[in-house]
């Protein structure tokens, strides 16, 4: 079994879903013959036909709205919004319809749809191509927001998202698309939604993160280990609903917590995690919770993106701050 990238893993999961359920339909801009701008859907149209893998006209509102209409009628649409910066014209459909169709109709009509979109910066992309606005969606009742951090988790979580009976926003960290390879067994096995993954066991501090920031966070954990600090790393993976139990259990053990995310700091998912730690985990904490995040600025164009995206050094510094208090 050879190792594959996240792009290939997502492609495998899509193919598996198309194979196992005739109601699965993949559509979006340039996902057909072109195979998507990141090549995530490469070859799928050829294999499954132009009726089930097809290019939509350039219209994000209609793509999202049509997915709502299709999902209510028994199709399981997987739509692609080409970049997260273009998702905003689809937000009306996601918030006003997809997330609440079940609730409005007392489960008479439901929206089992997946909206896939690249997430985050760090790939020298143009303006509006580097968004990490996951908290907008995590705020919305009725949605699931999922973000993988490796090829294996991308495969397993995407399959889970597609099979889920409710709408899922599936964020694909574009920086991780080809950053690493991992062995992925195409056995159709989904990973669980709504739970965090513990990526590293530790006892001195809990590092909580998701998506592309797993990369810097794991690097920081390695360096901390060489300095004698044992860091536990938690990949939140499902941002909504948030599995606080895993985070609280870890913090009860370590007594310290650093939350790392690329998104701007204010009203982000880090804010929610910190608030819940204050409400439910305060007595376990030996030091104030630290956040290492993108700044409350517009995501800069790529000459400055490295200065915006949290670095390993910033994570290390935050961890050191938690260790100063004993």
């Amino acid at each position: 079994m050879s190792e594959i990238t996240m792009v290939e893993a997502i492609n495998l999961a899509l193919a598996r879903a198309l194979e196992e359920d005739q109601n699965v339909v993949v559509f979006g801009e340039d996902v057909g013959a072109n195979g998507g701008v990141f090549r995530v859907t490469a070859g799928l149209q050829k294999r499954f036909g132009g009726e089930r893998v097809l290019d939509a006209p350039l219209a994000e509102t209609a793509i999202a709205g049509m997915a709502v209409g299709m999902a209510t009628q028994g199709i399981r649409p997987i739509i692609e919004i080409q970049f997260m910066g273009f998702i905003y014209s689809a937000v009306d459909q996601i918030i006003n319809h997809a997330s609440r169709m079940r609730n409005r109709t007392r489960s008479r009509l439901t929206c089992p749809m997946v909206l896939r979109t690249p997430h985050g910066g760090g790939i020298h992309a143009p303006e509006h191509h580097c968004e990490s606005t996951e908290s907008m969606f995590a705020h919305m009742p009725g949605l699931r927001v999922v973000i993988p951090s490796s090829p294996q988790r991308a495969y397993g979580l995407l399959l889970a998202a597609i099979r889920d009976p409710d709408p899922v926003i599936f964020l694909e960290p574009s920086r991780l698309y080809r950053l690493m390879k991992e062995e992925v067994i195409d056995n159709g096995e989904a990973l669980p939604l709504d739970v965090c993954f513990q990526l590293r066991d530790g006892k001195d501090v809990t590092l909580v993160t998701w998506g592309a920031m797993i990369h810097e966070t794991m690097q920081a954990a390695d360096q901390l280990a060489s300095e004698g600090i044992s860091a536990e790393v938690i990949d939140v993976a499902t941002l909504k609903p948030l599995d606080m139990e895993t985070i609280l259990t870890s913090v009860a053990k370590t007594g310290r917590c650093v939350i790392v995310h690329e998104a701007a700091r204010t009203c982000a998912i880090g804010s929610e995690i910190a608030a819940q730690l204050a409400e439910r985990g305060l007595m376990s904490l030996f030091a104030p919770v630290q956040r290492v995040t993108g700044y409350d600025t517009i995501m800069p164009l790529f000459r400055l993106e490295k200065q915006y995206i949290p670095s390993t050094a910033r994570i290390m510094a935050a961890v050191k701050k938690t260790q100063e208090v004993s």
Binding site: R52, A62, G65, V68, G69, M70, T72, Q73, I75, L109
Partner: peptide, 27 residues
């Protein structure tokens, strides 16, 4: 009429639903 959509309050937002439902029928 279990398959009919409920009344849509956000203006025009139900038209993509109708078109999506039509796509489901065509498929």
């Amino acid at each position: 009429q279990r398959q009919d959509f409920p009344i849509s309050v956000p203006i025009a937002s139900q038209i993509p639903h109708a078109v999506g439902a039509a796509f489901a029928m065509k498929l």
